[in-house]
Amino acid sequence: MNDIIVAILRSGTPLIYVTMAGVVAQRAGIWNLGLEGLMIIGACTAIVGIVLTGSFALAMLIAIILCVLASVLLWFVIEKLKANPIIAGLGLTGLGLGGTSLAVQAIFGSQAAVTAPFGVPKLGPAFGPFGVLSIFVLAMPFAVFAMWVLLRRTRFGLRLAASGEHPFAARSVGANPSRMRLAALIIGGVLCAIGGAELAAGSLQIYAQNMTAGRGFMAFAAVIFGAAHPIGSAFAALFFSVVGALGIRAQLLFGDAVPHDLLLALPYIATVFGVWLSGKLRGGRKAATGFAELRDY
């Protein structure tokens, strides 16, 4: 049983961090389809940073700075250049996937994979069978709770949500929706850096080109599924991870009888189902209002 929990936490933790980034952006009224790009930037810079500096702390600092800069770029394109946020987000994803490949090629003369000598510090033997997990896994529930407190129990969070749900109303009480969105994207950049670093350096210590493999989009789907509620979205992300683990289990048990491709598609089928289900629920509709509101601020 412990093995299963470890496996789910390993695959779920990067997704949950990135989902939180999507939640805070969604609350601020931005459909952040750049999560995939931010995640790969976090993954790449964490590993490359460790290799180049020999320091995990410095590597994380670099990852956070780059992800925040990319987030600020997204904000600038959306807010100042008035670009469509969906297209801008997809552009950021393209920039992240292509830019990391280019950067790795420029630094190492190769494009595919970089291996680091160490990764995110582990919890250690004191945590028994969970000692193989990284400190980011331990921090993850606190991050989700902190996001809930931030969005639901602080003046900043309420203004941020107001900026997303009704920018004119937020402005009438003195909030600046544009700045709130910038703050939301910066927070998201930090979270994506952690999520990407956990994916590449949590237990692997490897960066491979395009290794996010759609996880950023799954995180976005988790935001929709969870109605942009921090805890609901975190559970949605965890659900996708469980389904992914079950897909692997199904391959091992029924691979002879059922096509492997179908079993591999289970997480994505679950994602589509989750998004559809969210549309049937009040929360889903609530989360979906962000796009309409974004057009009139």
Binding site: A7, R10, S11, I206, A208, A213, L252, L264
Partner: peptide, 14 residues
């Protein structure tokens, strides 16, 4: 079992 990608070490580990 298949990972569904030639560039997904996280899935390979799982």
């Amino acid at each position: 079992a298949f990972a569904g990608s030639f560039q997904d070490p996280a899935k390979g580990q799982e």
